[in-house]
């Protein structure tokens, strides 16, 4: 079994329906097969989503309407198509209604004696010595360090949202992107499939540090895309800080702090940048305020990595979104 993928068994495995010997063999295979582990993760996500949908009987009015429509139409093929469309619409409408109607799950909490679970609107606060862990539905965990205060804003299958008032959390999320959000006074951390630390004070000043995957930090339409191994600073009332790799030279990160503060220090930033600091330079393309500065950033970037096929200098300098995205995805291969 170790040499044969077990894709066809994953659903039964996730549902706990395998007999003990098969389950043990599947366990043994999953321990050594990353592809099947990834498959199991996908299957589990799908099963959880399906489990959230209730079995619902269509209202009589819908069936009556379908029946009347069928009577009116002589062409049976067209009627069948209409019926299929109506049924599909009913399913979609039921799913949308359910997701919007659901008041929210309750999430388990460990580490606080008086609090075993939390739901929408609940506060969680750790004391000076206490730590706590929140199991965020079935998509991951959030660890809270001492002196952390947060609130559950949304607890639905398609949106898990916390508000971090102050303190420090460590989030580890296994769900697909954009299902987990943490709001602070300085913006929102949007999970793109990742593990990260988020630290902030009551004003929202702090930082985001990513250990795995990507996080998008967003504020008023402005965005910092932070990959594993990188961080960005957060400041209340300002756009998210420009992301930088944690191993950046001190001169570079100091110059970046100045740039994020008052827009100065661009020459120092460009002079001290390394190849992998194109992460930072890519963000600067949209943050510098003059075309001359944008050109300087662009020229420094192409000195590290050529433009990918299909992306031109004009595309970049005119901030064409698709071209910028394509270049970023190529640059990531050099980080």
């Amino acid at each position: 079994m170790e040499n044969t993928h077990i894709s066809e068994l994953l659903a039964a495995y996730a549902e706990g329906e395998l007999a003990a010997p098969e389950h043990a063999l599947a366990d043994a295979h999953l321990a050594v097969c990353a592809e099947c582990r990834a498959g199991l993760e996908d299957v589990s996500i799908g099963l959880r989503a399906v489990a959230e949908l209730p079995l619902t009987t269509a209202p009589d009015a819908v069936w009556n309407a379908i029946g009347r429509e069928l009577d009116r139409r002589a062409d049976r093929r067209r009627a069948a198509r209409w019926l299929a469309a109506a049924a599909a619409l009913l399913i979609v409408a039921t799913a949308v209604w359910y997701v919007r109607r659901t008041p929210g799950e309750r999430w388990e909490v460990e580490g606080i004696a008086s609090l075993h679970s939390v739901g929408v609107g609940d506060w969680i606060e750790t004391g000076p010595m206490a730590e706590a862990k929140i199991k965020v539905g079935s998509i991951g965990t959030v660890d809270m360090t001492p002196h952390t205060r947060l609130r559950v804003i949304t607890a639905k299958p398609l949106e898990h949202r916390l508000s971090l008032v102050s303190g420090r959390i460590h989030a580890r999320i296994t769900a697909p992107p954009r299902l987990f959000f943490v709001d602070t006074a300085a913006g929102a951390a949007v999970d793109l499939g990742c593990e990260y630390d988020l630290v902030c004070d009551r004003e929202g000043n702090g930082y985001l540090r990513v250990m795995q995957g990507w996080v998008s930090y967003e504020w008023q339409g402005k965005e910092s895309l932070v990959p594993a191994g990188a961080s960005c600073r957060t400041r209340a009332g300002h756009a998210p800080g420009t992301p930088f790799f944690d191993d950046a030279p001190a001169g570079f990160s100091e110059a970046l702090a100045r740039f994020d503060g008052d827009g100065s220090a661009l020459p120092a930033l460009l002079a001290t940048a390394r190849q992998r600091d194109t992460l930072t330079l890519w963000h600067l393309l949209t943050r510098v305020t003059t075309e001359a500065d944008r050109l300087r950033v662009f020229e420094r970037m192409v000195s590290f990595a050529p433009l990918p096929p299909g992306v031109s200098r004009d595309h970049v300098l005119s901030l064409d979104r698709a071209a910028l995205r394509q270049w970023r995805e190529e640059l990531a291969w050099t980080w």
Binding site: P176, Q212, A228, E329, A332
Partner: peptide
């Protein structure tokens, strides 16, 4: 060509 997991742009490969 090799890179860290983030280059794949795929959450499935993040680890």
């Amino acid at each position: 060509q090799i890179a860290s997991a983030v280059a794949s742009q795929s959450f499935r490969l993040k680890s």
